[in-house]
Amino acid sequence: MTVYFSEDHEWINVEGNTGTVGITDYAQNALGDIVFVELPGSGEEFAKGDEVAVVESVKAASEIYSPVSGEITAVNEELEDNASLVNTSPDGDGWFFKINIADESELEELMNASDYKAFIAGLE
């Protein structure tokens, strides 16, 4: 089990061939109170960098881009009723979707935890 991070502030937790994707604590903080998450449908396929979900706060909507290519295998239905999970537990219960990773080499382009930490430190 390894967690990778993208420059768009998504994390992907890889177990075997499946990645669980969410947004980072830094991202949820920047977005403020999340009111709605528009999730993809199970079975839909996305290429790396495709717009896969939308996170809405009261005054902003932000696109979430798929960190890897693959097919959606599950989405977090809890978020439909309780989008605030993204705020309270961005790296746990606030996950977005699971994706069947099509090309593992794409993971190499992502950051590990310490690289990401350095990356956000550079943004401030």
């Binding site: 009111v35 709605f36 809405e56 706060s57 009261v58 005054k59 902003a60 909507a61």
Partner: peptide, 12 residues
Amino acid sequence: LSTREQHIRREK
């Protein structure tokens, strides 16, 4: 639900 609207979503 103003995130549906033009002043936030613009072309979307």
